[in-house]
């Protein structure tokens, strides 16, 4: 194992996040986990979306690609397929993942792509200054919905579970130790690993605050009666508590990643492979058009 330090993962960039933003906790937990696992920065690719959370890549000295709004997961799949030796982490917010990018979320789940997906879920649009997000509570009043949110929130954990996710966890940005553990589990998991992080927006969300979560969250990791090995049990548990839980919610030990299921797909990274087509192969292919 190479010696990797926290310094290796820092950049010279000054943070744009508001003081107290939950995303600081997510960044720190991620950096600590990468250091703990001894993964050198050049072996990590982070694919970030648009929004406050999308700035993640600006502050972490790995390979970073900051894509168009909502498309982190297909881009991340592209990175993974090109170089399957990389640790590919997709990071974004609840708007990026569950509104404009919802389509891709469900499909990434059912494909079981070898990408780790960290969502910083603050239940609000922060960067556009406080509109409801798809996870905002029913009734939440904001400038764009002055009479209250008439929509029901997306339930990311239930959604992932019913779509067939093989690793589902939820962390809280204040609980660094648990979050780091959940990210570590995600990295070890073959296939798609979803870590939803409740990451309060201190500027625009006056409902889902640190205090709110400290009161409401139930830690399944500490619950002796909970076993994260049953999809049905996991669905029941998150429904019962309206998703106000933390910990490892579900884990399928038999998970096979998309890139391992693809027929004939190269076991070594495509990037760097000899891609020349041999004359014999070419003529053989041409012959089928006679």
């Amino acid at each position: 194992m190479e010696t990797v330090t926290l310094q290796d993962y820092k950049t010279s960039e000054k943070s744009w996040w508001c003081p107290g933003c939950g995303d600081f906790g997510v960044l720190a937990a991620l950096q600590k986990t990468l250091v703990k696992l001894g993964i050198p920065p050049h072996r990590v690719a982070i694919v970030a979306g648009i929004g406050c959370s999308g700035k993640m890549g600006n502050y972490i000295n790995s390979y970073n690609i900051h894509v168009v709004h909502g498309r982190t997961l297909p881009s991340a799949l592209g990175v993974k397929l090109a170089n399957r030796d990389l640790l590919v982490i997709a990071a974004g917010g609840d708007g990026d993942g569950f509104a404009i990018g919802m389509n891709h979320f469900v499909h990434a789940v059912r494909r079981n792509i070898g990408v780790k997906y960290i969502v910083m879920d603050n239940h609000i649009y922060g960067l556009t200054k406080g509109q409801n997000s798809p996870t905002s509570d029913h009734g939440q009043k904001v400038k764009a919905a002055p009479f209250g949110n008439v929509e029901s929130p997306v339930r990311p954990l239930s959604l992932a579970l019913t779509a067939g996710a093989t690793y589902v966890a939820q962390g809280f940005s204040s609980n660094q130790a648990q979050l780091a553990r959940l990210i570590e589990g995600a990295i070890a998991h073959p296939g798609f690993a979803f870590v939803n992080v409740l990451s309060p927006c201190v500027t625009y969300n006056k409902v889902n605050t640190y205090d709110f979560y400290k009161q409401m969250l139930h830690d399944l990791d500490e619950d002796p009666d909970y076993q994260p090995d049953s999809r049905g049990g996991a669905i029941a548990a998150v429904l019962e508590r309206e998703e106000l839980v933390t910990g490892l919610i579900y884990h399928d030990p038999g998970s096979v990643a998309y890139e391992d299921a693809l027929p004939g797909f190269a076991e070594q990274p495509l990037a760097g492979r000899d891609i020349t087509l041999g004359q014999e192969d070419f003529l053989e292919l041409l012959a089928s058009y006679r």
Binding site: V67, V68, S75, G78, L81, A82, N83, A271, G272
Partner: peptide
């Protein structure tokens, strides 16, 4: 966007 990710990664 998959294509962009894959080309980015070589």
């Amino acid at each position: 966007t998959l294509v962009i990710g894959a080309n980015y990664a070589g």
